[in-house]
Simulated assay, not measured.
Amino acid sequence: MWLSMNYGICFISLFIFSTVVRAVPVNKESFEQYLPVQIYSEIWPPFQVKDKQGKLTGLATDHVKSAFEQADVPYHILPMRWARALNFIKLKPNALIYSISRTPERESRFHWIAKLGRVNVKLLSLKESNEVISHPSQLTNYVIALKRAEASLDYFLGLGLEPGKHIIFVNNSEQALKLLDIGRVDFYPISAETLQSSLDIIGYSSSKFKYVYYFKALSFDIYIAANKDSDLAFISYINDLFDKCALCNAADASDILRNLN
């Protein structure tokens, strides 16, 4: 009798579960109130690039566009300053943001949709500099540039660096490179993948700079993510779009970058 009752309970549970799964919407018409999908980003070559015609492209952008266009789901990418993008995504359920680093501090703040690539962070200095860094704790003797809302801020604060004393905030990498060039800052932590694009924008030669330290702890995967208060059924649907995306599954952005180097 006990065994029969348990079989009955399992059957009923399975029936309820199957009914719930079948009830979950699986097409874009079920989410018309969220369309076009609002996606916040920034100009961050080579992952997000604005070409001469003003069209947004780049390694990560191509993945995002491919996922939505293959599924014929309308979307709208809004490039802006990164700090502003982070503020907007906090206020907009069912909106997305990319390319955002997946850190322990951010883990519970977003729904993580899909990996778009990997970034390797290195410490940049002027070529002529004789300063040697063997451990990041030594940075308390120097001044570094750091972008506003940078995910690595907590890391540097944890080393004892103080804003205004050891850290000068900038809006973008081009501004940081200019400060480095005139000696206003000693170092700038930057992803090796994005340096050349920033140099091209301001017309600097790579021969002016050199890497002096590799931040293994700061190197990270980049993702497209969603507001944490989003509709879970909608997030599941968007996850499915990326799972089925041919370009996204062919090779992630880090593989493409290795082929370019």
Results as ranks from 00 to 15, higher is better:
residue 6 N to Q: 11
residue 10 C to W: 00
residue 14 L to E: 01
residue 21 V to W: 12
residue 26 V to E: 08
residue 27 N to W: 09
residue 37 V to M: 02
residue 37 V to N: 04
residue 42 E to N: 08
residue 44 W to A: 11
residue 47 F to Y: 14
residue 49 V to F: 10
residue 54 G to W: 05
residue 55 K to P: 00
residue 57 T to L: 07
residue 57 T to P: 07
residue 58 G to T: 07
residue 60 A to N: 00
residue 61 T to C: 01
residue 62 D to V: 06
residue 63 H to I: 09
residue 63 H to T: 04
residue 66 S to C: 11
residue 71 A to S: 14
residue 72 D to E: 15
residue 72 D to S: 15
residue 75 Y to P: 03
residue 82 W to A: 12
residue 82 W to E: 10
residue 89 I to F: 11
residue 89 I to A: 10
residue 92 K to Y: 05
residue 93 P to Q: 04
residue 96 L to K: 07
residue 102 R to S: 00
residue 106 R to W: 03
residue 108 S to W: 00
residue 110 F to R: 11
residue 122 K to P: 03
residue 125 S to G: 09
residue 127 K to Y: 11
residue 130 N to H: 08
residue 130 N to P: 00
residue 134 S to P: 05
residue 135 H to D: 15
residue 148 R to P: 10
residue 151 A to P: 00
residue 151 A to I: 01
residue 151 A to Q: 05
residue 152 S to T: 08
residue 153 L to V: 02
residue 163 P to T: 04
residue 168 I to D: 13
residue 168 I to R: 14
residue 170 V to T: 15
residue 178 K to S: 14
residue 179 L to I: 11
residue 183 G to C: 03
residue 183 G to P: 02
residue 186 D to F: 08
residue 189 P to C: 03
residue 189 P to K: 01
residue 190 I to T: 07
residue 191 S to M: 12
residue 193 E to Q: 13
residue 199 L to G: 13
residue 203 G to A: 10
residue 203 G to E: 09
residue 209 F to K: 02
residue 212 V to T: 11
residue 214 Y to S: 13
residue 216 K to I: 14
residue 219 S to Q: 07
residue 221 D to E: 12
residue 223 Y to P: 02
residue 225 A to H: 09
residue 228 K to G: 06
residue 231 D to P: 06
residue 232 L to A: 14
residue 233 A to V: 10
residue 233 A to Q: 13
residue 234 F to S: 12
residue 236 S to R: 15
residue 240 D to L: 09
residue 242 F to T: 05
residue 247 L to N: 04
residue 248 C to F: 08
residue 248 C to T: 06
residue 251 A to I: 14
residue 252 D to F: 07
residue 256 I to K: 13
residue 260 L to W: 15
